[in-house]
């Protein structure tokens, strides 16, 4: 009958109107910024640099290999290598970045830098409230702003961070085993060389 649809529609809207005062389902507004919806675990906004331990300069995982700089599609990363070296997580002396700038007004959050980094040094952050009125300087993040601790990484991406830590620990164990094997081989060779010279030497 003519008008039936209108009546049904108006009843539905009336249910919405009345229900919005009582039920959560009929009022889905989240009043930002007083209330916030927690972000999902695999959310990504802009990259950050991970460091282990308390000192951000000593524990910085990045070794300035510049792979991320070369792979970045909009070329938003700028790296300058250091002149000296510092030991990395397995103890080997590595160079470190003297300058590591990311221009977040250019960055498109594609995550390619994260995918190609062989040292698990750069990961994606979830902070998005970065608005500033300084259009150029305020959106250029330098090494110190980008360096965030491994504990922070655990807090924002727990599963990923535990995976990374497990992998790094494995590599460290493998590296130590290799170093021990190499040391044993060197010691064996030195012992063999020492055993030979008294044999060839003589009275």
């Amino acid at each position: 009958m003519l008008g039936e649809g209108i009546i049904k529609g108006m009843l539905e809207t009336a249910k919405n109107f009345a229900g919005s005062f009582v039920s959560e389902e009929r009022l889905t507004t989240v009043e930002y910024p007083e209330q916030r919806i927690p972000t999902a675990e695999n959310a990504r906004v802009f990259p950050f640099l991970v460091y282990d331990g308390p000192d951000w300069q000593a524990g910085l995982r990045c070794v300035a290999c510049q792979i991320c700089e070369k792979e970045c599609p909009p070329k938003c990363i700028y790296i300058e290598k250091s002149k000296d070296k510092k030991p990395d997580f397995v103890g080997k002396p590595q160079i470190y970045p003297a300058k590591f700038d990311i221009d977040i007004s250019v960055c498109m959050s594609c995550q390619i830098c994260v995918e190609v980094c062989p040292f698990e040094a750069i990961k994606m952050d979830t902070q998005f409230e970065l608005a500033t009125d300084d259009r150029f300087g305020g959106l250029l993040m330098d090494r110190q702003q980008l360096a965030k601790s491994n504990e922070y990484y655990h807090s924002i991406h727990p599963t990923e961070a535990t995976e990374v830590d497990a992998r790094l620990a494995q590599e460290k164990v493998a590296a130590e085993a290799k170093a021990k094997a190499a040391a044993q081989a060197a010691a064996a060779k030195a012992a063999a060389a020492k055993a030979e010279t008294p044999a060839t030497g003589g009275h």
Binding site: F17, S20, T29
Partner: peptide, 13 residues
């Protein structure tokens, strides 16, 4: 505000 409530949202507040 009325339209907002009917559309499952708050109006201006």
């Amino acid at each position: 505000k009325g339209l907002g409530r009917m559309q499952n949202r708050l109006g201006p507040n």
